[in-house]
Design a protein around this nucleic acid. Structure first.
Lengths: 203, 203
DNA sequence: CCTACCGATCGGTAGG
DNA sequence: CCTACCGATCGGTAGG
């Protein structure tokens, strides 16, 4: 029993290694340009051996896009369940998003930019997941308006501003840099909230 | 004489048609995934005939990245020459950027995301061009601080926020939408300036 | 996990 | 601008 479980989990570990190496290569040169031979070399095996762990090249894309998408969505739903105040919700949601994205930059890159290489029906499923996440962010902004904390804004525009700020991070974030993910999240939150918060003088 | 000029400019037009069709295909599926046969079909000729207009596939990437990069940089330098006030400079720079990017979304996509497929020495040249542009935006923010119009901020962070807002547009902008590029630019400027402007009460 | 190998497709050239 | 074609490389399979 113990033996079998070990084998299963070792196999799982190897698969995760392959996917993580793949994401790094995809971040460097894009999904289409990443070759399975190149990936095999990075892993330290021959190309056909990859197919003992994967059904196809696209499985890598699927795994990464949906794992990260679900992770982000669950974190967002938790925020909506736990917190009451819209500002607190938004700050926590932004912090979660930044932490998830900076935790694995390569995976984040694949999630943000390479999902379009998914084929149907995964492509449509993925778009739904994304839309749901965007809707969750929009709901927070909407709640802030209703609470009278945020001024009335173009909901769509505010949501896009938030997503652009948190997703653009992957274009410049370096783990060796001086700012921690939490500090980055705080700065982004301050910046966004300054644009959203109703001026205190009028309350 | 007239004849020769006509031939040259017709040839130039065809090349531009090819590059524009190519950018649309690259936006859809990425540079590496775009095939020269697919491109030829979109243009209405056979694949080998493309090479009467292009030296190589990469020439498409080169043309688009550097044409757009120079266009953006020239617009930014003009702003710095003409205007005095930092707020005016920033608003105009953002408006120019948004107008250039929305004018040809496919080209903008290639410029923003696909430049990494350039090979040396073009790759290094391109990075220099980008850095120069980023430095130009940062200078405006810096000028605003010195003028006492903007509060002191993390320069790097403010610059990245501006670039993230204006570049994220290509992920959602649809020409059929209700907002014009100028309106989008205005909203972004308002949003950014709200985060940057020194509170009037303390002046 | 490997060796041997498949058909398909890639960017690009020769020659007209 | 076309037909005919090149070597290289692609994702993936058979069989052990």
């Amino acid at each position: 029993m113990h033996n079998k479980l070990t084998v299963v989990s070792m196999s799982q570990e190897k698969k995760e290694l392959i996917i993580s190496k793949a994401n790094a290569l995809i971040q460097k040169s894009g999904y289409a340009a990443m070759g399975m031979r190149e990936l095999a070399k990075a892993v330290g095996i021959e190309a056909p051996s990859l197919y003992n762990h994967l059904q196809s090249k696209e499985e890598i894309l699927n795994q990464t896009c949906f794992t990260l998408g679900r992770k982000l969505l669950i974190a967002l739903e938790e925020v909506n369940d736990i917190y009451f105040d819209a500002e607190q919700k938004l700050r926590t949601a932004i912090r979660n998003h930044v932490e998830i994205i900076t935790h694995d930059l390569s995976a984040a890159y694949v999630f943000i930019h390479e999902w379009k290489h998914l084929s149907e029906p995964s492509l449509s499923e993925f778009k739904q997941l994304r839309d749901k996440y965007e809707a969750g962010i929009r709901e927070i902004v909407e709640a802030g308006e209703k609470e009278g904390i945020f001024k009335e804004t173009d909901l769509k525009f505010a949501t896009l501003s938030i997503l652009s700020a948190v997703n653009w991070i992957i274009e410049w974030y370096k783990p060796e840099g001086t700012m921690t993910p939490i500090q980055i999240a705080e700065k982004i939150s301050d910046f966004i909230l300054q644009g959203l918060t109703r001026d205190k003088r009028f309350n």
